[in-house]
Design a protein around this nucleic acid. Structure first.
Length: 590
RNA sequence: GGGGUCGUAGCUCAGUAUGGUUAGAGCGCCAGUCUGUCACACUGGAGGUCGCGAGUUCGAGCCUCGUCGGCCCCGCCA
């Protein structure tokens, strides 16, 4: 179908264009028929332009306009005029287009919801009709910012001599880590490709090939349960560099983030970012991704409570556990109910609950008072600087549980006390470094890699590697923003000896290593340079830069929390012919 | 794998505590009136598988069981 093509978009006409003859293409947003005067709002992704028809002077045109309905696609020809009554709310509000002719390019059924930012629509309906949801300005805005972020990333890395290389999406399934999405091979029946959880090994091999500085904006796939910030397919900014140490990777990353914040938000962020060791992050904030926009630090009080004769504390000390607390400033007036709610949080995270000490009217009040000598409570009061009106929340448990519970309580108190109000443009960047190389898996009864099995150990800890492997720290680093893990990386093992030793620590058999990682070990024999890198979560980056905490807001066609796509109804069944070709039989339940 | 919560008109919700006549509201929609609207206004009207399936009951939107789906969380996510 032929139609007059637009000479301008619906967002660009201004007062200086008055008198101009224009053609617009767009969607009908609203028709306001006043009887003797008809207004039509025409919308495209650039904005809204008001068209006017005067039925008295243009009776035929007015008759045809009555046919227009919401979301019809039209062309409209007319002359730009200054408005009698300007609308200061929109950029084109000083002008309107006096309609001379128009045509319907395509009709639309009545949409299930109004294409507008004013209405409140359930996410289920939005995802079912995602094409209409994506027509809304507030939704489009995030994708336009996402686009801008792509451009900045490409430009930044180009300036630094990085090479963009696409790695494979049909890859080898490896053990360790998340579940793989599998793709059956038709040519090799019974064999499977896996969609990559990350291009980790490919980028390391590119270093061995001499590409020196690699970057890729790449999709990654993990077949695990979804969350408000987790999708089965997501995008990473994946980079790797040769002849570098930790500081080089950190510097490149900080430069990227500083530029993004400057160009997208106009915010100058200070580099270099603060760094916290993993151990310190846990002890002071109860998390390896602490939100440092507020203080509210955890204090460890195990030593002070030694000899308290309070059974729960004595038991904790006996098993090598920890007693620690948070001084919730000004919270002494918390009600029984509020304290119970916090105790429930502790239980949800495997804690036994909380005890508390508060200072009110200069009296120390606590359920512990009848068990624990006053001199000890006085010492605790001094140590945590408990002032009048303060509430000290205590947790006593195994070290991991204790700090984890307090970390969650810390966030809860911050939320309840409004520490996170009016912080839209506050960003706190911190590097968490010196992670443990390994952690013990109760389930598998062996050590597993905390980061991944290609991460190098810290040189100064190498002597512990056989005697106390759990104490060995890794050359790994995570970038954390406002309590969100934005990305993580490490310096890798680049000698075959290093890498083999790591596999031994993980208790992987020689044959298993050969089968799964033989190609890597082989490549490491041929002159692998020292190298390391990082992967930054692009979706989370866009979330931060667009101010949403829902990852589905920044992915055009996301899955629901049960992994379904409501628009196109996938996953779906396939034909018997397709299955037969792949040599696959489906076992039906029951 | 587990826990919580929700599902009623095209959309967003009330009604469920204590089962009881014909299931309501706002927005949207349809028709009409209106010359400066821009969340137009006003008058009138249409619109329901109370997610689905069983059960209890004289009677179920409401109670019970199952099931499907949305959201949030725990586990999981090298």
């Amino acid at each position: 179908m032929n139609f007059p093509k637009r000479s301008v978009t619906c967002g660009e006409l201004r007062i200086e264009n008055v008198g101009l003859e224009v053609v617009l293409n767009g969607w009908v947003a609203t028709v306001r028929d006043m009887g003797g005067l008809i207004f039509i709002d025409l919308r495209d992704r650039y904005g809204i332009t008001q068209l006017v028809v005067h039925p008295e002077m243009q009776p035929d045109l007015a008759e045809r306009v009555k046919e227009l309905k919401q979301e019809y696609v039209v062309w409209a020809k007319g002359k730009v005029r200054e408005r009698e009554n300007p609308n200061p709310k929109i950029p084109t509000g000083l002008i309107e287009v006096h309609l001379e002719d128009f045509g319907i390019i395509n009709r639309s059924e009545l949409p299930p919801f109004e294409i507008s930012d004013r209405v409140d629509i359930s996410e289920e309906t939005r995802l079912r009709y995602r094409y209409l949801d994506l027509r809304r300005q507030s939704v489009q805005r995030r994708f336009l910012i996402r686009n801008k972020i792509y451009q900045i990333i490409h430009q930044y890395f180009q300036e630094l001599d990085f090479v963009e290389i696409e790695t494979s999406y049909l890859t080898k399934s490896t053990p360790e880590g998340a579940r793989d999405f599998l793709v059956p091979s038709r040519i090799h029946k019974g064999k499977f490709y896996a969609l990559p959880q990350s291009p980790q090994l490919y980028k390391q091999i590119l270093m061995i090939s001499g590409f020196d500085r690699y970057v890729q904006i790449v999709k990654c796939f993990r077949d695990e349960d979804l969350r408000s910030d987790r999708q089965p397919e997501f995008t990473q900014i994946d980079l790797e560099m040769s002849f570098v140490d930790k500081d080089d990777v950190i510097e490149v990353t900080e430069g990227l983030l500083a530029r993004l914040w400057k160009e997208v938000l106009g915010i100058d962020i200070k580099t270099p970012f603060a760094r916290l060791s993993y151990d310190e992050a846990i002890r002071r904030f109860g998390s390896d991704k602490p939100d440092l926009r507020y203080d509210l630090e955890i204090v460890t009080l195990t030593d002070l409570f030694k000899g308290s004769n309070f059974k729960i504390f004595e038991d904790t000390i006996a098993i090598g556990g920890v007693i620690a607390g948070i001084n919730a400033k000004g919270c002494a007036n918390y009600s029984r109910k509020q304290i119970d709610e916090i105790s429930e949080i502790a239980k949800k995270f495997k804690g036994k609950g909380i005890v508390w000490i508060k200072r009110q009217n200069d009296q120390i009040v606590s359920p512990l008072a009848k068990f624990i000598p006053e001199r000890i409570l006085e010492k605790v009061k001094e140590f945590v600087k408990l002032e009048d009106g303060d509430l000290l929340i205590l947790v006593s448990d195994y070290k991991e549980i204790c700090y984890n519970v307090l970390g969650v309580i810390r966030e809860e108190i911050a939320l309840r006390n409004g520490f996170l109000q009016n912080v839209e443009n506050e960003f706190s960047f911190v590097w968490i470094v010196d992670f443990p190389l390994l952690e013990y898996s109760e389930e598998e009864k062996r050590f597993v890699a905390r980061h991944h099995p290609f991460t190098a150990a810290m040189d100064e800890d190498l002597e512990l590697i056989n005697s106390e492997p759990e104490k060995v720290r890794a050359k790994a680093y995570d970038i954390v923003v406002n309590g969100n893990e934005l990305g993580g990386g490490s310096i890798r093992n680049y000698t075959i000896e290093q890498q083999k030793r790591m596999f031994q620590l993980l208790n992987l058999s020689e044959s298993e290593v050969e089968e799964k990682f033989g190609f890597l070990l082989e490549a490491l024999r041929y002159g692998a340079p020292p190298h390391g890198g990082i992967a930054i979560g692009l979706d989370r980056l866009v979330m931060l830069l667009t101010g949403t905490n829902n990852i589905r807001d920044v992915i055009a066609f996301p899955k629901t929390t049960s992994g379904l796509s409501l628009m196109d109804n996938c996953p779906s069944e396939v034909t018997d012919e397709q299955l037969k070709e792949l040599g696959i039989k489906i076992e039906k339940n029951e």
